[in-house]
């Protein structure tokens, strides 16, 4: 009997939850705000689905309803990707060590 591919994806999902659990506990509390902004940026990888949706169907009629929602999702996710990574970068740049005298 073959295993449903869903089970494989589900296994990845569960393992990733565990990886996330251990990785996030090791994040230093002073960086919890950057953690939120960076997780926000990476969850925008949902743009992958948006691009597929936007490019689906025939190229003559690219503004079918499903395409339009794809395009809208691209804009939203792109705001997050650029905004999220850049604001994280800006915050992290501010964390400095004590100057040695």
């Amino acid at each position: 009997m073959e295993i449903d591919p869903f089970i494989f994806r589900f296994s990845i999902f569960i393992l990733a939850i565990f990886v996330g659990y251990y990785v996030v506990w090791s994040v230093t509390p002073s960086l919890h705000t950057p953690l939120m902004s960076v997780t926000n940026a990476i969850s925008s990888v949902i743009i992958v689905g948006a691009i597929i949706a936007a490019l689906a169907g025939s190229s003559e009629n690219i503004f079918e309803m499903s395409n339009i929602f794809g395009f809208l999702a691209i804009v939203l996710a792109a705001v997050n990707i650029f905004g999220g990574f850049l604001v994280t970068q800006r915050m992290l740049q501010m964390y400095k060590k004590k100057k040695k005298k």
Binding site: I17, G20, V24, V45
Partner: peptide, 12 residues
């Protein structure tokens, strides 16, 4: 990529 990220962000 999306499944891994979703799990990471969710547990975070």
């Amino acid at each position: 990529a999306l499944i891994i990220t979703g799990a990471l962000v969710g547990s975070s």
